[in-house]
Simulated scan of single mutants.
Amino acid sequence: MAILVGGAIGVVLGLTVACGVGRRQRRMKALAARRAAEADLRAALAPAADLLAACLAAGAGPRAAADAVGRSFDGPVGERLRRVAAELRLGAEPSATWQRFGALPGARELARCMERAGISGVPAVEGVSRVAAGLRAAAHRAAAERARRAGVLVTLPLAACFLPAFLAIGVVPVLLGLAEGLMAGG
């Protein structure tokens, strides 16, 4: 900017633009990291819901199921399930405990099913299985969308390489030949 505008105003303007670009890049990186973490969390919820449904189908209660599945998972899902099991073991209110688990992105329906089972004793196998199927379908849709996006992003460098080559090898010689013919004939 200092070269384009010149002088002290150009230096100040250049520094301002540089600071703005740096701030935007940091925000974009933070947003990408947050989206990646949320996608990983959503991907871990589907198998956790499947395991919860299997534990419930085997006759375990919501607390025992949460404890067993929580011990088999690392990361936020396992940690939250272990915390839910510990709180329920200590006599915490199932409604509040499962609502905190439901604060995880994508876990609200699963938490509602488990909360109903914990409060009323209603079997939650069908509801949890349905939620698990929905989470798996959402994970498949997200993966397909990422694959489509990657396919588009891969073509951009190819176009950037092949288009200039096509112009230089295919179009420019034809145009030069036509121009030479016109100059010789004229």
Results as ranks from 00 to 15, higher is better:
4 L>H: 09
4 L>K: 09
5 V>D: 12
7 G>Y: 14
11 V>Y: 13
12 V>M: 07
12 V>A: 06
15 L>S: 14
18 A>D: 05
18 A>W: 01
18 A>T: 08
19 C>Q: 14
21 V>Y: 10
22 G>Y: 12
23 R>K: 13
23 R>D: 10
24 R>I: 00
24 R>T: 15
25 Q>E: 15
27 R>Q: 11
29 K>I: 15
31 L>V: 14
32 A>R: 12
35 R>L: 14
36 A>N: 15
38 E>N: 04
39 A>T: 13
40 D>I: 10
40 D>F: 01
41 L>R: 10
42 R>T: 12
43 A>Q: 07
47 P>C: 09
47 P>Y: 00
48 A>T: 01
52 L>Q: 11
53 A>G: 14
55 C>N: 14
56 L>C: 09
57 A>P: 06
58 A>D: 07
59 G>F: 12
60 A>N: 05
60 A>E: 15
61 G>C: 12
62 P>G: 07
63 R>G: 04
65 A>Q: 07
65 A>K: 03
69 V>Q: 11
70 G>R: 08
71 R>A: 12
73 F>D: 00
74 D>N: 05
74 D>K: 09
74 D>R: 10
74 D>E: 15
76 P>W: 12
80 R>C: 09
81 L>E: 02
81 L>W: 01
83 R>H: 08
85 A>Q: 11
86 A>G: 08
86 A>N: 02
88 L>P: 07
89 R>D: 07
92 A>Y: 02
92 A>F: 03
94 P>F: 08
95 S>K: 10
96 A>Q: 05
99 Q>L: 08
100 R>F: 03
101 F>Q: 04
101 F>C: 05
101 F>N: 10
101 F>E: 05
104 L>K: 01
106 G>I: 02
107 A>L: 02
107 A>N: 02
107 A>Q: 03
107 A>F: 03
109 E>I: 06
109 E>N: 06
110 L>M: 12
110 L>E: 05
112 R>M: 04
113 C>E: 05
113 C>I: 00
115 E>A: 07
115 E>L: 10
117 A>F: 03
117 A>D: 03
117 A>N: 15
118 G>E: 01
119 I>G: 00
122 V>A: 15
123 P>I: 03
124 A>I: 04
125 V>G: 07
128 V>I: 13
128 V>G: 10
128 V>C: 12
133 A>W: 03
137 A>R: 13
139 A>V: 09
139 A>P: 01
143 A>K: 11
144 A>H: 04
147 A>H: 03
148 R>E: 11
149 R>M: 11
149 R>F: 14
151 G>S: 10
